[in-house]
Amino acid sequence: MSSTSTRVAGTAIRTRQSSRVRGRSWLLVQQLAIGLGIVLVWWLVYALGWLSTDILPSPLSVLVQFVLLAGSGTFWVALLQTLATAATGLVIATVVGVALGLVLGLAPPAERATRFLLDLGRSFPVIALLPVMVLILGTRFQMEATVVFLAVFWPVLLQTIYGSRRIDPVVRDTTRAYGIRLRLRFLKVLLPAAAPFIATGVRIGASLAILVAVGIELLVRTPGLGFELGAAQSELRPDIAFAYLIYAGLLGLGVNALLERLESLVLTWNARGDVLEVQP
């Protein structure tokens, strides 16, 4: 009886492992098939001439440009310029937004007084300020970073306020009851509790920063991915424009993945000393 079951189990392990591997590669095959399907439809639309070639390039020409761009200096410089703008705005917005958010989260009267401004700011399409900012600051890097900052500031600020108010009242009372000092309370209670929310705010902000940076480059022709994309389009090179579009998407994907990775690293480290973990 027992020997049969061991034998059964033995064969089972092998089949299971191979079936898991098979399952994963089968998924990959399906994902690739979907990608091929998209390209095929695209190619058909192109080949049947439903859209002018000025509008829709052939998939092959886009692939060629995609590869060529990877080897071109212009592309890498443009990528770095976009990243520099986005990163500068994001970093300043994170510093200012988190600091202000913690203050507003801790002082309810201040939060109430600024509530309308916050609602206005959050729903304000900051990119509309671009023409005014160009008038004031010119088409300089500072202008770009400022506009990105103004756009990204809101989600970071709001997430921080939200996070700092999400502290469990029991934890708040416990820390009060034990007379934990303000500095310690700030570092060990408030910040860890708000950290996941801040991280989300930064992640939202990063996507927004790239979007705004590309938008600025597109509209006022400052150097960067947006500029290159717009230029390719106006030179009737949709193949290059499409290649840039795909790179823009990959950039968004990459930054997002990076921040998610970072978040999981920082937050697990945080959770270890996290007061919230101790259920009173």
Binding site: S207, I210, L211, V214, G215, L218, L225, G226, L229, G230, Q233, S234, P238, A241, F242, Y244, L245, A248, G249, L251, G252, L253, V255, N256
Partner: peptide
Amino acid sequence: TLPQVAIIPI
């Protein structure tokens, strides 16, 4: 995650 403004010129 595609910066959606990039589709505008296209």
